[in-house]
Nucleic acid binder design. Structure first.
Lengths: 115, 115
DNA sequence: CTAATATGCAACTCGGAGGTTGCGTAAAAT
DNA sequence: ATTTTACGCAACCTCCGAGTTGCATATTAG
């Protein structure tokens, strides 16, 4: 049982890796910052202001899409990307787990010193 | 003022990038999982169980150290690494900002639909 | 003192990430 | 109908990240 829970946590951890990796890039992080405002944007709109090529932005968007953080809907001649909050909620959950582990460790240390 | 706040957010975002990048790797994520338990570990201890070389683990630890997520204290012939929660708190703050933006967008959409 | 342990440093390989350019195509504008 | 706009696809380049190996050094054990 304990073993089963351990591997489940490991599996969850593995699932978080692409999300963290997707956020580990300045360009993609700013794309997320724009898209989380709620409005969907086309590739051209997202390229505007960035000193990168449209193709570069497209690749970054595909990375975000693979991580599930963004969805693409093609309408007419333009494909608009919209934010999806689920993966970020997932990694927040994981980070809370890490923080909790750390806090419990501090508590154990404190009670050890006091006794 | 609004411009000042914008650039401040951009600066904060840039500071978070190395932390996200550090977490965007399965090996490093499992190292964090071990170290956040509170106990400091030597490089050999952290290598044990991993099918990687000690040097590989060392490099990963240096990446985590550069991101400020871990600190190295050399004692005798071994260098022990201990967890530092500050950067993770930082990115949690950033992710909360993103979620808040998204929630506000949903609220605006909802009130728009209702009226 | 000698052997074993724990680590650091440097060179090297290899694959993939980030980025560009060129070209082809569908859709919208004029 | 023609031009412009918004894309997608593919080839290519460059550089860095991940990992290994080999060797040198300091510390601890016997």
């Amino acid at each position: 049982m304990s073993h089963k829970r351990r591997s489940s946590i490991a599996a969850k951890r593995q699932a978080r890796v692409p999300v963290f990796a997707a956020l580990g890039d300045e360009t993609r992080l700013s794309l997320v910052a724009k898209l989380c405002g709620g409005q969907a944007h086309s590739i051209s709109q997202l390229t505007e202001g960035s000193n990168l090529t449209r193709q570069a932005i497209t690749k970054h968007l595909r990375v975000l899409e693979s991580a599930g953080m963004v969805r693409c809907v093609r309408t007419g001649r333009e494909s608009r990307f919209q934010f999806d909050p689920e993966p970020i909620e997932g990694i927040k959950e994981y980070l809370d787990f890490v923080s909790e582990q750390w806090d419990q460790a501090l508590s154990r240390l404190k009670s050890f010193v006091e006794n």
